[in-house]
Amino acid sequence: MSAPEVIVDNVEQALTSVDRTKSVDAISDRDRSSISINGESFRASSESTAFSVGDFVLPNGESYSGTLLGNVPEGNGKYVWSDGCVYEGEWRRGMRHGNGKIQWPSGAAYEGEFSGGYMHGAGTYVGSNNLTYKGRWRLNLKHGLGSQVYPNGDIFEGSWIQGSPEGPGKYTWANGNVYLGNMKGSKMAGKGTLTWTNGDSFEGSWLNSMMHGFGVYTWSDGGCYVGTWTCGLKDGKGSFYPKGSRLQAVEERYLNALRKRGYFQI
């Protein structure tokens, strides 16, 4: 039986439109000269260091309302981009920093921790297609432990590296198939066990989501094949054991030794 496909996703491209203004402090002096705060023309100055509450509108139509330290957002405030993106939450030195929420015009939203203008720390992202990720982030990418529910009902729980499942985890398909093992580049890779809803299972090595290397395929009736696989196919180097038969002592000892060393476990 072939392995089911693991879904790969990307956080909305709209995310980059928010990143381009992660620092309000980077506004040019020419733009600052025409900023309006509370309806009055304002000229930025490094000598203005007092806390205040106000709002300003940039020449490109973007706006901020909330607390300021001198001329830049500090504390709590709301920033609205010209394309309709909205951030509401904590700021530090003109950057999104602390807890806050971003909403995109598409309906996607992120709520959680920020650092230096990026989604960074613990947070929850809900896409416009109802994809939901809850877990750790690093520089706008899923990174660390997290759980994601895909639009079709598939679920991945485990380790993420730079936006994709990588490392130990559990992938559950909407139809009930379950993979418990290692992932690399959003694909089943390394050691792991896939159990199909019909009761069949494969315990062993994977490469690019295909059975590859040594492993044990067990049918629902109890029969099994012990041997090696190449790109998802038995390559002839192995033994078949019908239901009720017993593995050869040497193979049974070999499998038990592999399990004790964690060969089939994450």
Rank of each mutant, 00 (worst) to 15 (best):
M1K: 06
A3E: 11
I7A: 01
D9L: 12
E12L: 07
V18F: 04
R20P: 00
R20N: 02
R20M: 12
T21R: 10
K22M: 14
D25R: 11
A26N: 14
A26R: 15
S28C: 02
D31M: 07
D31T: 12
I35R: 07
S36A: 02
S36Y: 06
N38R: 13
N38T: 14
F42A: 08
A44P: 08
S45T: 15
F51G: 00
L58N: 01
P59E: 10
N60E: 14
Y64D: 08
L68Q: 04
L68M: 07
G70R: 14
N71G: 05
G75T: 08
N76Q: 12
N76A: 04
G77Y: 15
D83T: 13
C85N: 07
Y87G: 01
R92M: 06
G98K: 12
N99G: 01
G100S: 05
K101T: 15
K101V: 13
Q103K: 06
P105E: 04
P105G: 03
A108H: 10
A109T: 11
Y110V: 04
E113W: 06
G116D: 14
G116H: 12
A122D: 05
T124Y: 02
T124K: 07
G127A: 15
G127Q: 09
L131K: 04
T132V: 06
K134H: 01
G135L: 12
R136K: 11
R136F: 03
R136Q: 04
R138Q: 06
L139R: 10
N140F: 03
K142R: 15
L145I: 09
G146Y: 02
G146H: 05
Q148H: 01
V149C: 05
N152M: 13
D154Q: 06
E157C: 00
S159W: 11
S159R: 06
Q162W: 10
Q162T: 13
G163W: 12
G163D: 08
S164A: 11
G167P: 11
P168M: 11
T172P: 00
W173S: 01
N177W: 10
Y179L: 13
G181S: 14
G185N: 04
G185S: 10
M188E: 07
M188T: 01
A189K: 12
A189P: 00
T193M: 11
L194F: 13
T195H: 00
T197Y: 01
T197M: 06
T197V: 15
G199Q: 15
G204T: 12
W206R: 12
L207S: 07
L207R: 07
H212Q: 08
G213I: 13
F214V: 11
G223Y: 10
C224I: 08
Y225C: 02
V226T: 03
W229F: 15
W229D: 03
T230K: 12
G232K: 09
G232H: 13
G232E: 11
L233Q: 13
D235A: 06
D235K: 10
K237A: 07
F240S: 01
Y241D: 03
L247C: 02
A249L: 07
V250L: 01
V250Y: 02
E252A: 12
N256H: 13
A257C: 03
L258G: 02
Y263H: 14
Y263E: 07
F264C: 09
